[in-house]
Amino acid sequence: MCGRFTLSAPVLKVREHFGLEELADFPPRYNIAPTQPILIVMEDEHVTGGPRRGRLARWGLIPAWAKDPADIPLLFNARAETAGERNAFRAALRYRRCLVPATGFYEWQKQGGKARSQPHFLRPRDGSLIAFAGLMETFLAPDGSEIDTATILTTQASADLRPIHERMPVVVPQMAFDFWLNCRDNEPADVTRLMGAAPEGLFEAIPVGEAVNSVANMGPTVQDRITPPDDGGSDAPGGQASLPF
């Protein structure tokens, strides 16, 4: 799964990478959590191949048919393998695909029989921006207000990341942005090939301290490398981690 991620690149770099004509300034964010606003990128719905738009959305998709968001689980991730079969995601996968700009994400690796898990910061080795595959849905609240919401698609982790966690976010390469975002011409079956694991070696895994476990800790020090006790780093065998929130 992907329950925390980062976006710390300068605004100008984000604009250039995602082909955005405009983008309001924003501070670097080092510990983005579900229910918080996230930046998503969508294609202009009226112009094929036209300018892309950046907008904010609540991280945690609320299906349009939901009566009360409190009655459904927090849908901050969607399994790529089954998203097209689930009522919560089927329409968004067909008509409202988006990109989620990021500079990395966090995962928690179980440490044998220990109660606590070791957090890791996973970032591109070359320091580049990445785009997670996302889905967007606008929820119409009972009071008439509209809430843009989004989820991040996940898939089987690449072999080099599997010792940390068995799943990872779907990463859309820059050359495939137009193909992924073009919901008029490309149906879910057409974009399936984009929803596999990222290439091995794309990410560097950095063991970090437990400060990242708290959403109140938002500064860059949550990414500081540590030496895990008992050599519990990214090369140690592990299984699926449970997020500590």
Results as ranks from 00 to 15, higher is better:
residue 121 F to S: 11
residue 144 G to C: 07
residue 129 L to K: 10
residue 146 E to P: 00
residue 149 T to S: 15
residue 123 R to F: 10
residue 172 V to H: 07
residue 170 V to L: 02
residue 130 I to G: 03
residue 120 H to R: 04
residue 131 A to V: 07
residue 132 F to C: 09
residue 121 F to W: 14
residue 154 T to F: 08
residue 176 A to K: 15
residue 176 A to S: 15
residue 127 G to N: 09
residue 157 A to N: 03
residue 156 Q to M: 10
residue 166 E to Q: 14
residue 179 F to W: 13
residue 152 I to Q: 04
residue 166 E to W: 08
residue 171 V to F: 00
residue 133 A to R: 12
residue 179 F to S: 14
residue 172 V to C: 06
residue 129 L to W: 06
residue 144 G to A: 08
residue 165 H to T: 00
residue 154 T to S: 05
residue 144 G to N: 01
residue 176 A to P: 07
residue 154 T to V: 13
residue 153 L to Y: 03
residue 131 A to S: 14
residue 133 A to T: 04
residue 132 F to M: 13
residue 148 D to Y: 00
residue 153 L to K: 11
residue 150 A to E: 05
residue 163 P to S: 07
residue 133 A to W: 06
residue 174 Q to Y: 04
residue 167 R to E: 03
residue 122 L to I: 02
residue 174 Q to F: 10
residue 156 Q to E: 14
residue 170 V to I: 07
residue 157 A to P: 05
residue 153 L to T: 02
residue 164 I to N: 06
residue 125 R to V: 12
residue 127 G to Q: 05
residue 159 A to V: 09
residue 136 M to T: 14
residue 160 D to K: 12
residue 130 I to D: 03
residue 175 M to K: 15
residue 145 S to N: 12
residue 180 W to Q: 12
residue 120 H to A: 06
residue 132 F to I: 08
residue 147 I to L: 14
residue 148 D to L: 07
residue 156 Q to V: 10
residue 144 G to W: 01
residue 162 R to K: 15
residue 163 P to Q: 10
residue 164 I to P: 04
residue 153 L to V: 02
residue 180 W to A: 14
residue 163 P to D: 07
residue 135 L to R: 05
residue 135 L to H: 06
residue 138 T to A: 09
residue 159 A to M: 07
residue 141 A to H: 13
residue 164 I to F: 01
residue 168 M to Y: 01
residue 132 F to D: 09
residue 127 G to Y: 01
residue 174 Q to M: 13
residue 136 M to Y: 07
residue 180 W to N: 14
residue 158 S to D: 12
residue 143 D to E: 10
residue 177 F to E: 11
residue 161 L to D: 02
residue 167 R to Q: 08
residue 149 T to E: 07
residue 132 F to A: 09
residue 146 E to C: 09
residue 156 Q to K: 09
residue 123 R to G: 01
residue 140 L to C: 10
